[in-house]
Amino acid sequence: MYDFRYDKYEPEYTVPYIQFIPVPVFMPRQPGGIYGRPTGRPPQGGISGSGMPPGPPPSKAPAKRPPKQGGPGQQAKSIDGSSLKPCRFKYVYIWPKRGPGFWAWLINIGRNSISGYRWYRGRWAYFGMDLKQIDSFLCY
Rank of each mutant, 00 (worst) to 15 (best):
F89C: 03
I94W: 07
I114E: 10
M129S: 07
W95L: 04
W103C: 09
R123G: 08
W119H: 10
G110W: 06
W103E: 06
L106W: 08
Y91I: 01
S113R: 13
Y117V: 00
I107P: 03
F89H: 14
W103A: 06
W95E: 06
R88Q: 15
K85C: 02
Y91P: 06
I114K: 09
V92Y: 03
Y117I: 00
R118L: 07
S82G: 06
G110D: 13
W103I: 03
G101D: 02
G122F: 05
Y117N: 04
R98M: 13
K97P: 04
Y120T: 01
G81F: 05
R123E: 12
G99D: 05
N108P: 07
K90Q: 13
A104Y: 07
N108G: 12
R111L: 07
K97E: 11
I107E: 14
K97N: 12
I114C: 12
K90G: 08
G128I: 00
V92C: 10
N108Q: 13
L84A: 04
Y93I: 00
Y93T: 01
S83Q: 10
A104M: 09
G128F: 00
G128A: 01
K77D: 15
V92K: 04
N108I: 03
W105S: 04
G110S: 13
L84Y: 06
R123A: 12
Y91C: 06
I114F: 13
K77S: 15
W95Y: 11
P100K: 11
S113M: 08
G116D: 11
R98D: 13
R118E: 12
I79H: 14
Y93W: 14
K77I: 08
R123C: 05
K85N: 09
I109Y: 09
L84D: 02
I94T: 06
W105C: 05
G128L: 00
R98C: 09
R121F: 07
R123T: 05
N112E: 14
I107M: 10
R88F: 03
I79D: 14
L106H: 09
R98A: 15
Y126I: 00
W119M: 02
F89W: 07
G122S: 08
V92A: 11
L84S: 06
D80C: 11
C87A: 12
S115K: 04
W119V: 02
I109F: 09
W119G: 09
I109Q: 08
K97W: 09
C87P: 10
A125W: 02
Y117W: 15
Y120V: 01
W119C: 10
V92G: 08
R98N: 15
R111A: 11
R123Q: 14
G116V: 02
Y91H: 14
R121L: 08
F89S: 13
R121Y: 11
F89E: 13
R123Y: 06
S82I: 07
I114R: 12
D80Y: 13
F102W: 07
N112W: 06
G128D: 00
D80H: 15
G116K: 10
S78T: 02
M129V: 00
R121D: 15
N112R: 15
R123D: 12
D80W: 09
